[in-house]
Computed example of a mutant assay.
Amino acid sequence: MQCIRTFTASYSLFPNGTDFIFNLQRFNQEKTEEATPKRREEARKKGQVAKSVELGSALCLLAAFFTIKLTGTYIYEQLASYMQFLFSRFTKEDMTIASSYRFFLDLALIFLKIVLPIMLVILAVSLLVNFMQVGFTFSVEPLKPQLSRINPLAGMQRLFSKRSLVELVKSLFKVAIISYFIYQFIIEETLNIALLSRLALRDSLAVIAALTFDLAFRIGVVILVLAILDYYYQWWEHNQNLKMTKQEVKEEFKQTEGNPQIKSKIKERQRALAMRRMMQEVPKADVVVTNPTHFAIALLYEKTMTAPMVIAKGQDFMAERIKLVAKENGVAIVENKALARALYDTVEIGETVPPELYKAVAEVLAYVYRLKKRLS
């Protein structure tokens, strides 16, 4: 377990000498960092997403009343035809098991014809709204049994929590707003309501239906506006709940990317191994081209090669190491500043010399071969 040292400091801020002590570790435990993609993905797998139930309810309500208004004539015809059958033919028939069965079957069929279009529209709108809010996600985590759900103490804490208080305020505000719009609507339509007693039954039903749809759409729009505000609140609260402490961010980085200290040690060992292997290749070189102090490049050429190959190169300290190994093993060292810099910048270890440097490298190798022949 990683031990985290706590820094405490005290200052005498009060006349009586009382020390004011604060702990910097507390600042490290505050959730001030935005949630990482991994944290958001884990929350999504658990079913914790920013979602407003109010938004779906408002759009479903508007969709239901809009569908009823569009299919009002169809619903009226279905109900009228069934009532005509019920009061004309059915009352004249004997009440038998077969007739009762047919009666309930016709009733269920009429119910499906009327309700099914509305239910399908509500289902489609509900699925669309949920998909637009959270996308496609499936999680069984919320369905898993949890002992905290049946714990009375935890239930009391949830009952008097900040979230419950916010939900209560939202509900009261919603009731107040809707009540105000209903009151305003009644005040505006008082005269039309009073005139209903003078109209025929068919006309009065038409007026009542028109007033009902008008009121329903007004309330639906008000609920929709409140639902949009609720969605932004849910999104803000969800982000606040997912925030992380600095220590949590560090621990997650260690889990995903690995401990930085361990990674630096691994890279250091890899560099040491690469350097060791490179130094082992220097004695095989035909020549080492130098800057003379800043760069050193070891070249090897064999008859089977298409062009000379760089088997080692280095800068500053590494260049000195390459030259030292070359001297110890009798490898020729040639000073050529322009060629050394060009080879260092354009050719990696294990690559052959590019065609534009053929002539310069060939001159160096020819010089080395002549020198070896003269010494031999």
Rank of each mutant, 00 (worst) to 15 (best):
R5P: 12
F7N: 10
S10E: 10
S10P: 04
F20Y: 12
N23L: 14
L24W: 15
Q25P: 05
R26Y: 11
K31F: 12
T32R: 07
E34A: 13
P37E: 06
P37W: 08
K38T: 10
E41Y: 12
A50K: 00
K51Q: 14
K51E: 09
S52W: 03
L55V: 03
G56I: 04
C60Y: 02
L61G: 01
A63Q: 05
G72E: 05
Y74M: 13
E77I: 08
Q78V: 12
L86P: 10
D94V: 15
F104T: 09
A108R: 00
M119Y: 07
I122T: 09
I122M: 05
F131C: 06
M132L: 14
Q133S: 02
L143M: 15
K144H: 08
R149C: 11
A154K: 07
G155M: 04
M156K: 02
M156I: 08
R158C: 09
R158H: 11
K162R: 08
R163Q: 14
R163V: 07
S164L: 11
S164V: 07
L165I: 09
V175M: 05
E188C: 08
E189F: 15
N192T: 11
I193P: 01
A194P: 05
L199H: 04
R202G: 15
D203F: 06
I208C: 05
A209E: 09
A210G: 09
L211C: 07
T212A: 12
L215R: 13
A216F: 09
I223P: 01
V225D: 09
L226V: 10
D230Q: 15
Y232L: 10
N241D: 08
V249M: 12
E252Y: 01
T256A: 15
N259I: 04
N259L: 08
P260L: 11
P260G: 13
Q261W: 06
S264I: 03
K265A: 07
K265E: 08
Q270C: 05
A272W: 03
L273K: 03
M275W: 08
R277S: 11
M278V: 02
E281M: 05
E281W: 02
D286I: 00
V287Y: 00
V287E: 00
P292R: 02
P292V: 10
F295Y: 13
L299W: 03
K303R: 11
T304Q: 03
T306D: 05
A307K: 04
V310N: 02
Q315A: 09
Q315I: 04
D316T: 10
I322H: 01
I322C: 05
L324N: 12
A326I: 00
E328H: 15
E328P: 02
V331P: 00
K337V: 12
A340V: 11
R341I: 03
L343I: 13
Y344T: 06
P354M: 06
Y358G: 02
V361I: 08
V361E: 02
V361K: 01
R370M: 01
R370A: 09
K372T: 05
K373Y: 12
L375V: 14
